[in-house]
Each structure stands twice: as structure tokens, then as C-alpha cells.
């Protein structure tokens, strides 16, 4: 199909066909990861910069591995090691990187819209590795891929996203990707963490997970951050677990073949119980591996395919 994107800023602007074509590409890339030498020469000679203004282990390492697997080299810059700490603006930082001849920029930033700002000012591809509470498109893609691998399609499936919807870029990217591909998406969490107007994105808010747990095919459990408690979004971690944690007890009301996703890092015993996280229904390690494959596919589509045009 005709690839029209020059950047990956969010899944909101992707069509169903585009989403599925990235997943197809990722499935092909995943085969590379099973080879003894996990590398193709597609992007040899290219350098991609990982610009991480927020701490991250999983996503950063996943991108680094994907870059290496595509034959490119990577440079990772964190907030503390960059001249942003000396007061350089984001604009100057990325303009300098472009002038140095890098082939693409991957950016994670605490502010929604930061990657869009960077993309507006750069001619090279920009990949959003998570911006504020807006989007985390490669996470949305890897979750979609994981479910498609499991089911063949998400069409007609029902998925519950559980937890802190308000502060979750994972939730937004999941909602866009899954609803576009024909799934029904429910969101549930403390009302204080369910933002008004979420139904405009195509999700159906439910006040308690028990209302939909018996009928859903998958649950995507979001990480709950401790600071939300001190900020007064809910009274205690214990009460959170009781009402919204995915416990063995709650699991009893779900379908036996329920698929359990978690974007990591997990707070065991809070949003998900340890025996649930390690139980047979979880696909968390598949998600991690698919993350690399999806990021390889994205790099290929933006850097290699884009470069041919």
C-alpha cells in the first residue's frame, strides 16, 4: 500500500489499513529476531537518535535493539546528559542533531505535543516514543500486534483498558488503534482518573471493571503511579487494588481464555496481582518481544521506505 506518513506521532491519524500494514511488517521483522544473528542490513550506515527527556528502560532499550537489528547505529541522549540541562531549547537541540546528519529522531517527552513540535521543525522522520498523556504509538501498535497474533483479528473483540486513563498515553494509543480495527474498547478506573469526553475517542467508559469483565476478550492493565495517591486521585493503594486491581478474585468472573496485557513496568500487588501477572493468560513477554519487531517495522517504513520516495 501507499505509505503516506513521514513521522509517527500518533495512531489517531492512521487508517485501519495502515495500522494492519505496520503489524504485517512487524510480523515479518519478528522472524529476524528468532535468527542467530538478529540483524538485517536495511538501514546500514544510518544513525538514529533516541532523545529521552523522561526516564525509560523498556522503551529505550527496545528502540535501541530495533535500531541495531535494522543495521543502523543509535545514540541515546537523556535529559540529564543533554545540553537541555544547560538551558538549551528543544528547538535548538533537535536542529543541531539534524545538522549533524542523523537519519531520524525518536523522542520521549513529558509534554503532550512535544514530538509534534519537533516534527514541525525537522525534515527527518520523528518517532513519538511517548508524549505526556497524549500517545505512545509504538505501544499501541505492539499491543495490536500481540492481539492479532493471538486471535488473527481484533474485529468484533472486546477489550477493557483498566486503570489511570487520564494520565495514560498507552490508553489513548490503544483506543485509537483498537477501535479503528473494529474492536469494542471499554475503559474503567477510578472516576477521578477517567477524563471527561473519553467517549469522543471511541471508548466506552464503565464505572467498575466487574460490569464488563465477564464479556471482554482481553484486559490491558495500566500501571498506576504512586504519586496519584498523594495528589488525591484515590485514597490508598490498598483501596485501589480492591476496586480496580486485577486480582485472582476478579479474574474468576472473566472468560477462561481472557488475554491479559500490561505495558510495564508492573506494580505487582497493586494494579495486578503477581499470580495473575505470571499466570497462563498473560502475554506480557510477547508484548516485550513484539515491541522490538514493531519498532523495526516503523523504522523500516519511515526511514527505508520513506527514503526511496
Amino acid at each position: 500500500m501507499n505509505w503516506r506518513h513521514t513521522d509517527l506521532l500518533g495512531l489517531r491519524f492512521f487508517s485501519k489499513a495502515e495500522l494492519l500494514s505496520v503489524v504485517d511488517q512487524a510480523i515479518a521483522m519478528k522472524a529476524v529476531l528468532d535468527r542467530p544473528i538478529k540483524q538485517v542490513p536495511t538501514l546500514r550506515g544510518r544513525t538514529v537518535v533516541n532523545l529521552f527527556f523522561e526516564p525509560s528502560t523498556r522503551t529505550r532499550v527496545s528502540f535501541e535493539l530495533a535500531i541495531k537489528a535494522m543495521g543502523a547505529s543509535s545514540i541515546t541522549i537523556s535529559k540529564d546528559s543533554s545540553s537541555v540541562k544547560k538551558g538549551e531549547t528543544l528547538f535548538d537541540t533537535v536542529k543541531n542533531l539534524q545538522a549533524m546528519g542523523v537519519s531520524g529522531v525518536i523522542i520521549r517527552h513529558a509534554n503532550s505535543g512535544a514530538p509534534h513540535f519537533v516534527a514541525e521543525h525537522l525534515d527527518i522522520p520523528v518517532i513519538n516514543a511517548g508524549d505526556g498523556y497524549n500517545e505512545h504509538p509504538t505501544q499501541g501498535l505492539l499491543d495490536l500486534m500481540t492481539l492479532i497474533e493471538r486471535w488473527g483479528t481484533v474485529e468484533g473483540k472486546k477489550i477493557l483498558i483498566l486503570g489511570d486513563i487520564a494520565h495514560s498515553r498507552v490508553a489513548r494509543s490503544n483506543i485509537w488503534a483498537l477501535t479503528k480495527c473494529g474492536a469494542t474498547v471499554y475503559v474503567s478506573g477510578p472516576k477521578s482518573l477517567l477524563p471527561g469526553g473519553i467517549e469522543k475517542l471511541g471508548a466506552i467508559p464503565v464505572s467498575h471493571p466487574a460490569l464488563v469483565l465477564p464479556e471482554v476478550d482481553a484486559v490491558n492493565v495500566l500501571r498506576v503511579q504512586y504519586e496519584r495517591q498523594t495528589a488525591g486521585f484515590f485514597p490508598s493503594i490498598q483501596e485501589y487494588r480492591l476496586l480496580f486491581g486485577l486480582t485472582a478474585d476478579k479474574l474468576k468472573m472473566a472468560k477462561p481464555d481472557l488475554v491479559i496485557l500490561h505495558p510495564g513496568p508492573m506494580n505487582r500487588g497493586i494494579e495486578i496481582d503477581s499470580d495473575v501477572a505470571d499466570g497462563p493468560q498473560n502475554v506480557i513477554m510477547d508484548q516485550v518481544k513484539n515491541g522490538i519487531a514493531v519498532r523495526m517495522a516503523v523504522l523500516y517504513l519511515l526511514l527505508a521506505k520513506g527514503g526511496e520516495q
Binding site: R12, Y133, G196, K200
Partner: peptide
């Protein structure tokens, strides 16, 4: 504005 655009964009 705290409304649906803010929710949509995560602002």
C-alpha cells in the same frame, strides 16, 4: 480548557 480536546490530546 478542561474539555474533550484536552482529553483527546492528553493536555
Amino acid at each position: 480548557h478542561a474539555g474533550d480536546v484536552a482529553t483527546m490530546l492528553g493536555l
